[in-house]
Design a protein around this nucleic acid. Sequence first.
RNA 1: GGGCUUGUGGCUUAGCCAGGAUAUAGCGCUGGCCUUCUAAGCCAGACGCCCCGGGUUCGAAUCCCGGCGGGCCCGCCA
Length: 589
Amino acid sequence: MSFMSDFEDQVRSAVSGALEAAGAGGLDFTVELPSVEGADLAVPCFTMSKALRKAPAAIAEDLASRIQPSGLIASVGAVNGYLNFAVDTAPMVKGVLDEILRCGPCYGSAPASGLRVNVEHTSTNPTGPIHVGRARNPVIGDTLARCLRRCGHEVTTEYYVNDVGKQVVILTWGVMNVSDEEAEAEREEHAKASGHEKERDKTDHRLVAKYRVANRRMESDPEVQAQIADMMRRFEAGDSEVIGNVRKVAEAMLDGLRETLATINVTLDRYTWESRYIEDGSARDVVSRLKASEYAGETEDGACYVDLKDFGIQGKNTKFTFTRSDGTTLYTTRDLAYHIDKFTRSDRVIDVLGEDQKLGSQQLCAALRILGEEGVPEPLFYSFVSLPEGKMSTRKGVVVYLDDLIDEAVEHAYQEIRSRTEVRGSDMSEERMREIARIVGIGAIRYNIVRVQPEKQFVFKWSEALNFDGNSGPYLQYVHARACSMLRKAGDFTRDTDPSKLDDRFEVNLVKTLARYSEVLKAAGDGKKIHMLPAYGHDVAVAFNQFYASVSVLDSGPRRDARLTLVECARDVMADVLDCLGMGAPEEM
RNA sequence: GGGCUUGUGGCUUAGCCAGGAUAUAGCGCUGGCCUUCUAAGCCAGACGCCCCGGGUUCGAAUCCCGGCGGGCCCGCCA
């Protein structure tokens, strides 16, 4: 149990007691975080006004006079119709710091819940490199997974690989039919158009050139179109040669994507291939179960659907088709089989999806209910990232690749580090500077993505992506590096959590901020509000920097050990926040 | 056309679901702070009809209704 929730419990019972004494026992009230300084929790008295037939201000005065500060409650006051409570800072400071030192990296985390949570994220079609338009998905998904682990759950992250369908078949046709020379020419042209010297030598970038050429040729050449259509037919008929080729190409592309994901600290526990649900017959099973349902119907051509109008789906989207007229399954049918499968191995299923999937996800949930499945996936939607000039498109080449963004951010970080080491006259090695530049550049990218609520539209701007000041990833990392530097310079010290030595307002404020961590993790993980986490990290950083600026830790006589202990605790919490954000925690920068 | 979503200082953004005190923070802007623990920092300041109009309420950025602007979706695609 965290310190602040103990405090809240005491406030609740104090107010209940006071109401009882005032002859209004059982009256409902809320406890909230005050927006004014000098109070740690507040109880608004406006709602009690009617029942007590008294002005809120008078109620607050009356209740305040009936509460004796005790336990963790240091003071009670009546202001503007609110009951304001201040926490007793001494036990708070000691309690929180002792807890951080006792728990180590587990501080803030909840005990094991035994709940199996599956987080599906990224799942981009293996037809081209990841671009910033889609980059929100892995960052949101990975951050959420890290939060959920800290909420005590057994988390599995999973990538659903779409190796079925026209797009991968076109790519496969391209890989088999477009010559390396032709692809190279395409790459050069594309590089020129996007302002690069040359395209990078990386599997996914090499393969996507063939995909682009294949798309162009298909549009202009009916013969190519026929070949691709033939491949599609053979694929759906279960031709093992075609399926094998497609799988091989998709694997190669996926290797490139995995490499990119790994550089931004995203690794997934499991890759599930869509074709598997055709092979193992579970998609067919879904078909026969849906056909047997009372909502099933069939078009004149023989395509099958279920009508979802009783499931809250509006307008002309109520017919959810699950087989073509030739009887073959559709993406959505296989997605049903996939979700049924996920629920056999998870208690809670979360899908991180682009906003274009909203209707599809609703239909999926309705179909699962028709199938009598108990579990329903929880979608987490994000809006697309666009460029100032408009939407990104792999095929048109209007795109900023995540790999390019990473390079740019790392280079920018390197320049910053180099100029700083010069100013400071430190002798950091070239290798070390490069290493830290990676941590800082990648941290900036991840932070920049999660700091905004997922549903908000996001226009990609280099100036924002490369902002290393203020509300940025490097700002948090800087605090960690500063704290490490101080602890390095301090040498050995004896841990001291004596609150009488930590009574400066900035010290108390820093501890209060550290005390909030577990609540933040709960909201960010279980509540799926991951943007709370970067905001919290920013709060910790601000509190630390204020403390840093107001006292000279290494030169503070009898308070030195206590202050160093606070520095250590702040650094450890910040290190965990950074890790939860999938960012590195550099010891110098 | 219908559905979903979004609109908060010049720009970006928190708060909205569970309505309450002077609306959060960053960039940018103005002015201060490095002989002393990393100035990627700290301090002070200016900048807001919380898209518009109604309604509910003692009280609305928040809830309801109606507009307007942006985004997404409405395939026997994936």
